[in-house]
Design a protein around this nucleic acid. Sequence first.
DNA 1: CAATTGGTTCAAGAACTATTGAACATTGCG
DNA 2: CGCAATGTTCAATAGTTCTTGAACCAATTG
Lengths: 116, 116
Amino acid sequence: MSRTPPHPTREQIELPLVLDCLSDPIRLAIVYQLAQQERVSSELCCGDFNGLSGKSNLTYHFAKLRDCGLMQTRVAGTNRFMRLRREDLEARFPGLLDAVLKSAAKDADRLQLLST
Amino acid sequence: MSRTPPHPTREQIELPLVLDCLSDPIRLAIVYQLAQQERVSSELCCGDFNGLSGKSNLTYHFAKLRDCGLMQTRVAGTNRFMRLRREDLEARFPGLLDAVLKSAAKDADRLQLLST
DNA sequence: CAATTGGTTCAAGAACTATTGAACATTGCG
DNA sequence: CGCAATGTTCAATAGTTCTTGAACCAATTG
């Protein structure tokens, strides 16, 4: 439980899984929030998303985001720090993440995303 | 059954629904094939996708693609002609469809898409 | 009119998804 | 050590999704 969970390699990242991950409003909000944070520190920990859902439900969504290659988890003490796998995604699917993030930003109200 | 089915307006197109639609391999293949066809005629009918799945299953996926605003169906005699709602999607989510199509093209083998 | 073509509808089933809460594990701190 | 904080795991559940086949409908053709 204290070890770094498994992540897919860059090459293992699959388009349908990524799109499916991004199609869930909670996960989209997580990704959006991570992207916003990038300007500042590039990492956030689980607790920073407590506004989006309950803890165990977040764990579930984090796992999906990790499994599809969208984000990476780093274990540090009692915290898990997350960051977007921007470079890997850009390498596999150029322009995709940005297009999704821009689209999300456009609909921030409708999607109830917090615009930092 | 012979009437034109309902379509969402441009403004009603929702990001999560679009992403969810594109996350299914069969639907992604349909969209990809429609995009390929655009160079030629911009429309295809149901039968052109018979290689992807059975007829009734295709009807199901067509409905999803219609309901989320990705494509439009036009009834003509005994045929239904489909086309991508490129302009509406570009207006709502600039660059998104192209990014997805490019990503799909990159993984055409993996996704078993037929590259015209 | 009868048969064919192109596609839809409906019902059923298997599989998967998201959500919840309770119990648990690990780390850090007084 | 004892306790709080941070997350995870597990089981249960409600709901959704995809797939299939059989029956059906509407338009065209002979």
